[in-house]
Design a protein around this nucleic acid. Structure first.
Lengths: 192, 192, 192, 192
DNA sequence: AATGAATGAGAATTCATTCAT
DNA sequence: AATGAATGAATTCTCATTCAT
């Protein structure tokens, strides 16, 4: 079953997400990605420069989706800041609940490679964290809390839930996860 | 150039932590670990069965240290539960602030390999999470909060701080990190 | 320097026979087989799973050629049994006189690996020996001779001649070897 | 259980025969030979120059035993030549029936290494074959038979029986083997 | 653009041998 | 002589990448 031409770029990307999720980047074979995508091994290199470029592209897509969604939220200045925070979490969750494999790639590979590449990926991440920090502060952190650090706590907490939730054996639903995150955020932002 | 058997086992283990931290497990070369440890390449295999076994051993050590410390805490039933929670965080932080490289290996490799191996490592982690969950519940979570999920939030938050803090460019100190974590925990466990 | 796919499979197989013959299996380097075959080292593994698989394949080919030839002979029920026996010897000789290297691999490696693998190779050998035993009995062994043991004597005798004859310094010709074998067989099967 | 000093040489040799028989020379590990011999790995090198030297020594011993026995037989000019031939076979059989492992090493490794070394081992073999050839001719080969070739047939036949007989699953006894060999020799040497 | 056979650099691992004790 | 930990050269096999078709 050959893909419609023009779809190959996407087919390869999706296959890569799946294979990277299953075996990890290091163990993933380009030949397998090609097979999963339904194209020839060599074709992968018509669309991407290298195996690493494939991963890079996955993260680029991921971040641009997320940051697009978040920048839309940021414009909604009429929405109360507490609700903006909740919607932000929802947006992040939405991205990964669509695609469990992407979630697994994200939790396993992102931080290592972001560190190695030091480029636009790190920029995206910083943008994201700044936005998260600002939103937290808008929502009003409890007394003594420092937004520049709490942003990492919140990010880490959400990241871990995504991690758990991407595991097929995860005992709780996405909805429960979301509820608990919102509980935590409310605790942290309820005035003193 | 024969070398007398000063503790090669330990030297190799430490070298491995450093090299895994710097390059990631997949990119790390056994030959480099050996060079860093100051031994011949082949000597690594006198002490460890394989590169993977080396990583496994690192995690085993890490968990047994942490769980030892925590089980001591668990016995201090006279300590108020809120304080036990704080000491637990301190114990975890202590382990990684001794050894930034270990922290980097932990955040980059642990969850992937725990998943792959499915063995004692996963058991250690479950034990740890159970302890964390119980301690959280003892400390009294806010209304609506579910200890079986909140434990992951807390773990993720702490993990992320360790991650940040292991980065040489991290803008905050370990003490600040600790303070912020404790703030968060207090928020989450203050009776409404 | 890419090379067009003239029969690489065969080229590698022949190179392997030559290198195994010259150095013995254990000393033979895959890199050298590849060089002799005129392909890249890695190409060997496009056609064979391992160095051992290469040897296995050599023996498979050898036995299937021999057994094919023999099963054709077996059908010639009109031919007197004594002559069938002689033709059998001729068929075996033919296989190895075509290819001295194969003869050397056969005498040096076959029995060791047949023992180790315990699979189809041993089956081929048993089939061969059964055929030889039956043909000997048809031809009428001398009084007191037991076909189930004499088959090994005959096989060993022929094998040794092949061995000697594969040596470049061998003082006798293939024709002389054949004559002497037939003499021996006639002695053993002449009714007294 | 440490060996009595002075016995180590022999213990190592015997262990080597066993290990070479079990795994083949190439697969045999010096460390294992040492363990089987009950000595330290390094001790092997106090008695033998190398793993190859160990094998060489095994074959030296083997041939000197055999040739000693045969040269004694050769002196018994009063014994009829036919009987001398039979006794010769008995002497060879005796050597290997004492030590099945030696038999396996002999059939698997001897000819390959004799070829490689081209030294005294080949001389021993030639001496042996000359003796065998002469004895065959003394016993009176059938018309048309050429002793210079028939010696190889006889040698190959005996070698193969030894081979079969060294296999634990061998279906016939040493006595049966001997009987059948003698039958064959009688056929070949009975005046036309 | 598409293909997939061919390439060859690279790495983990083994193990005969050495040598400090 | 005896030991066995240490050595490092050597080899199999892998796989990202290329390129002739």
């Amino acid at each position: 079953m050959r893909q419609k031409s023009g779809d190959k770029h996407t087919a390869i990307l999706q296959a890569a997400v799946k294979v990277f999720a299953d075996q990890g980047f290091a163990e993933a074979k380009v030949a397998r990605i090609a097979r999963v995508a339904g194209v020839a091994t060599g074709s992968v290199y018509n669309y991407f420069d290298s195996k690493e470029a494939l991963l890079h592209s996955i993260f680029q897509n991921m971040w641009s989706h997320i940051l697009d969604a978040l920048s839309q939220l940021a414009e909604q200045q009429d929405v109360p800041s507490t609700q903006r925070l909740e919607r932000m979490v929802d947006a992040v969750f939405a991205r990964f609940s669509d695609d469990t494999n992407l979630a697994r790639v994200f939790v396993n590979e992102q931080s290592f490679w972001m560190h190695r590449w030091e480029g636009d990926l790190a920029d995206h991440f910083r943008t994201f964290m700044d936005l998260l920090g600002r939103t937290l502060e808008d929502a009003g952190l409890c007394k003594g809390m420092d937004g520049s650090i709490q942003r990492y706590l919140v990010f880490g907490a959400v990241r871990q839930l995504i991690h758990q939730w991407a595991d097929p054996a995860c005992p709780f639903t996405k909805e429960e996860a979301r509820t608990q995150i919102l509980h935590m955020l409310r605790c942290m932002t309820s005035k003193e």
